[in-house]
Amino acid sequence: MTQHAITLDVDGERYELAVEARRLLSDVLRDLGRTGVHVGCEHGVCGACTVQVDGAPMRACLLFAVQLEGQAIRTVAALGDNGGLDGLQQAFHDVHGLQCGFCTPGLLMTLDALLRERAELDEATIREVVSGHLCRCTGYDNIVEAVQLALRRRAKAA
């Protein structure tokens, strides 16, 4: 199979790679050590592999790595605050917003993008955004609460 030479920008690092065209971004990111990109369904439904491409959340399993030359890809490895938890992650921790943790990085990437766009969110909107991700453990209540807590803390700090 033909290998394509590409340059990927992942979490602010540049990678020169040779990849087969058919290799999914989710697999290539994992090969680059971004194992927080979880593969859950490979048809775009579960959301576990969600990453940010130029700031927008997207399913990494529905992109070919070869498509993304020059675009900024951000994975869960880029979140956090100096090796510790950032506000959203801390809120997930504090209100038990995760159990097995497999869906969590994908959710964080979508919700991180959401919190960058919006300062206030009502519960219905949060639920709507969370509904693009499947979680089999939590029943979602604590995930929704985590987002609300992160928003409240951010508003207080501002």
Partner: peptide, 9 residues
């Protein structure tokens, strides 16, 4: 249409 991470693409 679908969900946010689908609509962005």
């Amino acid at each position: 249409i679908a969900h946010w991470p689908i609509r962005t693409r």
